[in-house]
Design a protein around this nucleic acid. Structure first.
Lengths: 182, 182
DNA sequence: GTCTATATGATGATAGAC
DNA sequence: GTCTATCATCATATAGAC
């Protein structure tokens, strides 16, 4: 086994993404990774620390929205939606995102991570655009739209949204988000 | 104690709303209600059945979106957002909604309830409006926006959205949602 | 490094006294 | 109707053998 620690982290991220923090046991992660449950504690010290290592590691997530600030309004809105959908196609990023969303409802730790990511990455990027006074609230509503799509598409699997292709979603959601970009 | 069963249901709904299905123990509900944990099983048979009784009972939720079909586009969008915010002011409805959202990530049972509510109430009402082919997808995106607001405002408590007044949210969100109403 | 064995505690549910 | 006592199961985490 070359990289046991890495195998554990990947298995953990997948479990946390599909079952959330509470419903994921160290035993189930260990089973997926093909190692003993005691090893996880040996490597990471606690379940919480393993969670942080699994979802807090450097991912392409933070800089996904980086150049939103530079694009014209229409292009920026399209980019936001399309980039989110690209995340959903990358196993690593999707699992990170879903693990955060699924775990945030029951773990204050996870809620803090997701809150910080949304605040820094998205609100930060959008704040660099026009400087209206309600810009932070507008950015929050954009974040709400994207988080809601993640919830309905991947967690709830609501048929119309779960089965729609990326282009359909972009075509409909981008104009709505455009209205938030002052 | 006049209505023990009712006291239990209210305590359960509040616990499920604040902690989600998995993280809520029968003992904690019993403690809040001031009764013994064995009573909950005696009354409801199982934790799952108690959950159904707590969040599945008749609430003002289903008909909240009823007359959206009858209003002109601009008024309909405003009504959708404002009604959601009214729900958040009613302890009963807010707890029902939050219990569903918080529990849907880990309980397939709860996910089914929320999926059914969104499909029947919201998608149904919106389908009664214009008859475009992508109407169901448009309605899903509206649902995603509202669920996302609930997540960020009440679960994640993202500052800009959590602290904004109802009028501010309506003023910004309604025009965006209006774009989804063909 | 990896696993066995186990400590310690919380959970949902049951049986039965009053 | 309500509670006491208990069961079987699962959890995270620890100690220590190899």
């Amino acid at each position: 086994m070359p990289d046991t620690r890495g195998v554990i982290v990947v298995a953990a991220r997948r479990r946390f993404a599909t079952h959330g923090y509470d419903a994921t046991s160290l035993r189930s992660i260990a089973s997926d990774a093909g190692v003993d449950a005691a090893l996880l504690i040996h490597y990471f010290g606690s379940k919480e620390a393993l969670f942080i290592s699994a979802v807090g590691l450097p991912t392409p997530l933070p800089d996904l929205f980086a150049d939103v600030a530079r694009l014209p309004r229409r292009r920026a809105a399209e980019a936001l939606v399309r980039r989110y959908l690209e995340i959903a196609d990358s196993e690593h990023s999707r699992n990170t995102m879903l693990a955060l969303v699924r775990s945030a409802v029951s773990s204050e730790q996870a809620a803090g991570l997701l809150r910080r990511f949304l605040t820094e990455a998205l609100l930060g990027a959008i704040a660099q655009r026009g400087g209206e006074e309600d810009q932070a609230l507008r950015a929050s509503l954009i974040a709400a739209q994207l988080v809601g799509i993640a919830m309905l598409r991947h967690v709830l699997r609501l048929p119309p949204l779960a089965e729609a292709g990326p282009d359909e979603v972009v075509a409909l959601a981008a104009p709505a988000i455009e209205r938030y970009l002052s």
